[in-house]
Design a protein around this nucleic acid. Structure first.
Length: 307
DNA sequence: GGCCAGGTGGCCA
DNA sequence: TGGCCACATGGC
């Protein structure tokens, strides 16, 4: 549900959110890294360019009472046409994971003391998504086996070399490169950004598959079977179980996705359980049994404990 | 200077 | 199936 509003000649959409949502806790997640290049956060407002019919649309997101979302359109004095508004509303809902009902997750956490201690302080946090499948896959591949700071550096170089941007005030708001641009690059071109040879090959291969239609978000979601989608992704070189589950979690919206080999997850569990060593994969599967269906959410919340 | 990093593919038994 | 190892370089 939403309303179209005006304030000081600025059009905005007032978007209703589920009860299990708090803007502030999501905002602090968005503020976690100054190195992030796909959106800007300033004074509690998130600015982003979203791709609408190959045309970047600037949006600004803020909140009313920590509950309602306000979606504004910087630089516009009239409300955009209906189709664009519908697109933006859907984009924001997907980005903030507002289509997911978190009530069962919180009910589950109430019955598990350990889980509750992780979940309760972050009440209202959603898995902030990466709606663009190509971006999600690239980010997963780039981030493998390197520290997060360097991963952000690589993404920035990738985006600034091959993406497009819209200007807002003195900022550039970037649109992630489209697969057809990347599919045409040589391995050496990507290696110049300090991606490894293998990662460069993987990125170009994923781009080629998305360009010719062998791989798409639609086809992965078509079977309505996340396990099948995972199998499809893992067939592709450079996408292992971690990356596939990461993409299931942040793009395809499978609440039970579980990147169990994730070192951040392992560190968080080790820390919270006061273990002397990192938990094994087997131990993590054992631990996750009670909340298996919500493993993506638990993982996301656990990341917030350490990062 | 050394260990670790939001892993994966490939090889070997 | 399960255990190593190269990759390849920045961050701290």
């Amino acid at each position: 549900m939403h309303e179209f509003c005006m304030i000081n000649n600025q059009p905005y959409i007032r978007l209703h959110t589920p009860e299990q949502f708090r803007y502030s806790v999501n905002l602090s997640y968005m503020e976690r890294s100054a190195l992030e290049c796909m959106f800007i956060v300033e004074n509690g407002t998130i600015y982003k360019a979203v791709p609408y019919l190959n045309e970047p649309v600037l949006i600004e997101i803020s909140s009313e009472d920590d509950r309602f979302l306000r979606i504004g359109f910087p630089g516009r004095t009239v409300m955009p046409q209906q189709e664009m508004c519908d697109f933006v509303i859907h984009y924001v809902r997907e980005w903030f994971d507002l289509y997911t009902d978190l009530l069962p997750f919180y009910k589950l956490a109430e019955r598990d003391e350990w889980l509750q201690s992780v979940v309760q302080p972050l009440y209202g946090l959603r898995i902030m998504g990466i709606p663009d499948l190509f971006e999600a896959l690239c980010w997963g591949i780039m981030g493998q086996q390197i520290n997060l700071t360097f991963a952000y550096t690589l993404k920035r170089r990738f985006v600034e070399n091959f993406g497009t941007y819209a200007e807002w005030m003195d900022h550039q708001l970037w649109i992630f490169p489209s697969p057809d641009i990347i599919a045409m690059l040589s391995v050496e071109t990507l290696m110049a950004l300090q991606l490894t040879r293998k990662k460069s090959e993987y990125l170009i291969e994923v781009a080629a598959r998305m360009t010719d239609g062998r791989l798409s978000k639609k086809s992965l979601l078509q079977a309505c079977d996340y396990h099948q989608a995972e199998k499809e992704m893992v067939k592709i070189r450079g996408i292992g179980p971690w990356t596939a589950n990461y993409v299931l979690m942040r793009c395809l919206r499978d609440p039970s996705a579980f990147p169990v080999g994730d070192v951040g997850l392992q560190n968080a569990v080790q820390h919270l359980l006061n273990m002397e060593r990192k938990p094994s994969i087997t131990e993590l599967h054992e631990l996750s049994k009670p909340w298996k269906e919500w493993a993506a959410y638990v993982t996301f919340y656990l990341w917030r404990v350490l990062y």
